Amino acid sequence: MKEAFIFPGPKVEIRNVDFPTLPTQNHIIIKVVVSGSNPKDWAIAERVPGVNQGDDIAGIVHSVGTDVTNFRPGDRVASFHEMLTPHGSFAEYAVGLEATTFHIPPTVSFEEAATIPLAGMTAALGMYQRLGLPLPWFPAQERLPLVVYGAASAVGAFAVKLATLSNIHPIICVAGRGIAYVESLIDRSKGDTIVDYRKGNDEVVNGLKHALGGVGKLSYAFDAVSDKGSYQNLMKVMDMSNGKITLVLARKKYEGIPPDFNKSYTQVGKVHSEQYPGIKGEKKLSGLLGDQDFGAIMYKFFERGLMKGWFKGHPHEVVPGGLGGVQLGLQNLKAGKASAFKYVFRIDETDGLSRANL
């Protein structure tokens, strides 16, 4: 079968490789119909080259391990592939773990489903396991301001969607080119608003202060950017005694955030394994389910929401050429050309693909 491997640049090599085998009896082999993509696909390749970095699988179950009980061959599924392990989503066939796989209802396209696994779970971990915000089935009952910085990004947009389901308002969104999309996610009647970061850092801080209404400092911030002045701006409005911020880039030095401030990191790979180490200075909540149990539960929540229509994926753009389009898609991601949408790849558009295997 064909599989794409990512190198610094980003550059992509498409190779003929052996058909995957099941790593454990809790795994599933999936015929990939559509692969999603994420900024980390090019970023991690800069330091870990030669890996199939695709982690957003949408396709049809080919085979399952003997311990798998919720899926069977022929099921339409999406799955969050275990990062940096073999057989990611940039391939004809990929491997997913049962706990991080969910059914795709017939009303939802493979393209939409491919936008959800990594970004949706990153948002959920940050909102609930890191910030400790009210869960959708036990929603907020009073005013609870939340800033989502980078609200037009996939992670940020999913955070806004989850906040709405948790009745968290006002949601103060920081966005730029994707403001029109963010506007479609918020409820102005509940105090939700948008601050345009393109006006400069001083105006962002002023906008955040104005949105908070002069009723005190900010207690909760989800920084889906974690760069370009985002956390520095947030720290100017945070409650330094009781505030919490969660960040998406764990390998970064956050100058400007005091060492003892309550900061955490989403580290979405923790829904698969505790091999992702804790970060020095991170403040962890106690008394919660572990990230792996939480992840398994939330993917069922996503599945239910897709079926009922109260949860949706992210806008997307199909890059032509299947695996042959992965390099262009990742180059565009690195260049910052994606705003308020995700690049996805239809694998059957790959040149030279054996249709007999699809």
Rank of each mutant, 00 (worst) to 15 (best):
I245F: 08
F110N: 01
K190M: 12
V17G: 04
V205A: 11
P277S: 07
E349V: 03
S241E: 13
E3Q: 15
S109F: 10
Q292G: 01
S35E: 05
R47G: 08
I14A: 00
F138Q: 15
D67I: 00
V12I: 13
G336T: 09
V95F: 04
V204I: 14
L135Q: 07
K283W: 13
K190R: 15
D227N: 15
K283H: 15
G321F: 11
R76H: 12
E3G: 06
P145A: 03
M238A: 09
E3P: 01
L144K: 13
G176L: 00
H169L: 08
A119E: 03
K270M: 14
R143K: 14
A113V: 06
Y128G: 03
L358N: 06
V225C: 02
K312Q: 13
L218C: 08
A211H: 02
M1T: 12
E3H: 05
P139R: 07
Q275N: 11
R177D: 11
D293F: 01
Y231S: 12
G88C: 09
G213Y: 01
P105H: 10
E46M: 13
L165F: 04
N167H: 13
S63R: 14
M240Y: 08
S286N: 11
V32Q: 06
D192S: 07
G287S: 12
E142M: 12
G278W: 05
M1H: 11
Y276R: 04
I279F: 06
G295M: 11
I194N: 02
R15L: 14
G200Q: 07
T246Q: 01
E98I: 00
H314S: 06
E46A: 14
P10N: 08
H210N: 13
G322R: 03
A221G: 10
S79K: 03
S37Y: 05
V204H: 07
L135Y: 15
A99V: 05
G325P: 06
S37H: 05
E92A: 10
D351K: 13
P136F: 03
E92F: 06
G352P: 07
Q275Y: 08
